[in-house]
Design a protein around this nucleic acid. Sequence first.
DNA 1: ACATTAAGGTTAT
DNA 2: ATAACCTTAATGT
Length: 229
Amino acid sequence: MPKLDESLLTGLPPFSQLNRAQIREILDQAGSRRYEEGTAIFREGHDAESFFLLLDGYLRVVRTTQGGDQIIVLHISPGQLFGIAPALQRDTYPATAIAAAESIALSWSARVWSDFTARYPGFATESYKTLGQRLGQIQETLTEMATQAVEKRVACAVLRMANQSGRKTPNGIEIAFPVTRQNVSDMTGTTLHTVSRLLSAWQRDGIVESTRKHIVVTDPHALVLLSEQ
DNA sequence: ACATTAAGGTTAT
DNA sequence: ATAACCTTAATGT
C-alpha cells in the first residue's frame, strides 16, 4: 500500500476542521484503490463493510427496479464521501456505485465510522450535511419526474451534470465523464430514443454539441430556459 | 406527448 | 469483425 499524502484530504469539507496529525491518523486507516470505467465499487444489498471518499473520477449511483431496469439516482464527484451506509443504522448498501470514468477512492472499515464521528470535530456534521443535500436532490428529481415533461427533465439532468462536473472549453461547458443516451434516459425515466432526438434537436438549435458518450453545453442559458418552461 | 418498433448508420476495440 | 452506441422514421397509446 503506497503511503498517502496528507494533502489529499486537507481542504475537503469533511476534514476541513482537522489538524495535520488527525488527518494522518485517518489516512493511516485508509485503503486506496483504482476503479476502471464501468466497475462497481459496491453493489446494492451487499454488506456495507466500508465507506468511501472519491479522490478522482466520477461515479453513478444506481438502483435496480423490480423489472430489472436500472435508474441512476445521482452522481458522485471528487471530494465527496459515498457508501456511507454506516452513517445511520444500515448494514447493507442501498444502491450500487459504478465508476462512470476511471476513478480513485479511499475506503475505511465501517467499524471506524462511530470512532470518526466521535473523535473528529466537524466530520459528523459535514457528513450529515451532504446526506441531507443528497436526500433533497433525490426528492427534487423525484417530483420533477412525476410532474414535468420529458424535455424539461432531460434539460435538468444535463444541467445538473454540467454544474457538478462541468469544465470550461472554448465551445462551452463539457460534462467531464462519459455519458451515453441510455445513461441520460436512465436518469430521466425516458427512452434512449427520446434522448437522442432531444439532443439532435438541441444540437440543431446550437444549445449543445454531442458526440458518442460526450456532451458539451454550448448555450447554458438556453438550456436553463428549457429547464424552467 | 410520449413509447415502441424497426432498420440502418457510426465508432471503438 | 464484432459489439456498443447513435439516428431516424413509422407506428402505436
